[in-house]
Design a protein around this nucleic acid. Structure first.
Lengths: 168, 168
DNA sequence: AGGGAATACTTGATATTTGAAGTAATCTTT
DNA sequence: AAAGATTACTTCAAATATCAAGTATTCCCT
């Protein structure tokens, strides 16, 4: 496994000479990335709704919480899922209604609230995650393990570059 | 369970263990793919709104039309942008209001309507597309041309696999 | 200490998206 | 040629998401 991410790379600026060809390429990569992602998301979304009466957004929130036994703050959830604060409030409210999460004022800062999974939420998520993984494996089955590894690394590099450099 | 060979006790079932590894990998690829895509989409979205008072969905529709001088039917737009028919009706309605597209009943099938860009729409899109390409190039600048090419190919394979086999 | 800035979240108005049901035109079959 | 299916799109209500403004709490500076 090449340690691509070990040494953070500097963000390259395309030089004039190679710009045209590369620009075009970046754009094509993005278009495929976007359409691939949208396609998978659409299928997962509809399957989650059909099988569990849930949604991708809810699943995303639950999966963040699943990894954090201590729970997370609203703000942290908002950052990680890349949705607005208002929406997180709404989502967590709905999940709370369903009994999958609990909210409690953080002891160290009474402005903040700490959200965590209930036992039911944990159970519910585990069930969905299992199905979710099956679907994903199926959907990516056209790619070899080597291709998947390469893609995983490249995506890591790309994301790293985007978050370290403030773009745009 | 009778085994004819004296297999070592703790040997792992090869297919199973391999599968487990791959499954995990697919999932990781998807998570990165999704978060990368969401990140770029969020940034492009907000930049499009800030700079042009537009949105990614509108941009997507316009870009499909830009490539088709003959225009497209609503259904075709819906398929290509992966959004529901109702939403396309709404989006095209809004773009029509703004004077960027026109709708006309298709001559060959009077149920269908053919949407195409107006001159203003073409101008508007060209302007946005230029900025859009700059942003994208910047955002993917952490990836070398070779990495981008590999990613492009892999995404093509993945998408191909997803659309040919009907999964899930 | 104590007033202003910053932070963490919620709220309410508004925008966008979906999904299901409805309308009109076309195709199929008899 | 006419009923019945199918297709292409629209409509409308409900679900979901955003944005800006509001509240409460904490931080910072003098």
């Amino acid at each position: 496994m090449t340690s691509r991410t070990a040494a953070p790379r500097q963000v390259r600026r395309p030089s004039r000479s190679q710009a045209a060809g590369r620009d075009h390429l970046s754009l094509r990569v993005w278009l495929r990335l976007f359409s691939c992602s949208t396609l998978v998301a659409a299928r997962v979304s509809s399957a989650l709704k059909r099988e569990f009466g849930s949604s991708l957004a809810r699943f995303d929130v639950l999966s963040q919480l699943y990894r954090e036994p201590e729970g997370l703050r609203m703000g942290e959830l908002s950052t990680r899922t890349l949705t607005t604060g208002g929406n997180i409030t709404w989502l967590v409210g709905a999940l709370e209604q369903d009994g999958y999460v609990t909210r409690s004022t953080a002891s160290e800062d009474r402005r903040a609230s700490r959200v965590s999974l209930t036992a039911a939420g944990r159970r519910h998520f585990a069930l969905m995650a299992q199905a979710h993984e099956r679907w994903i494996v199926e959907m990516f089955s056209a790619l070899s393990a080597a291709e998947q590894r390469a893609m995983y690394e490249a995506l890591g590099t790309a994301k790293q570059g985007m978050t370290s450099a403030r773009i745009p």
